[in-house]
Amino acid sequence: MSFRTEHEIHRRRFGRNLGVGLTLVAFIAIVFGLTVVKVTNVGPIQGFDHVVRPELMPAEEGGN
């Protein structure tokens, strides 16, 4: 049983809502992707405070 007649305006509003929804999903994906890239490419940091830990640097060979 149909409660409401489907109308052109409903179709446009649905399209608009779908567009906004997909845009938000894409935005979340981009922020997540950027976070992964930044965290994995930033070098010798520890995850809990993002502070550089010299002790995590590879030991220098030789030297004087």
Binding site: R4, H7, E8, I9, G15, R16, L18, V20
Partner: peptide, 18 residues
């Protein structure tokens, strides 16, 4: 007015996502 009474077609001023 219910939805069916609103004129449809090019005259409708309702923006789509585009």
């Amino acid at each position: 007015r219910n939805a069916a009474s609103v004129p449809a077609g090019p005259g409708v001023k309702e923006a789509g996502f585009g």
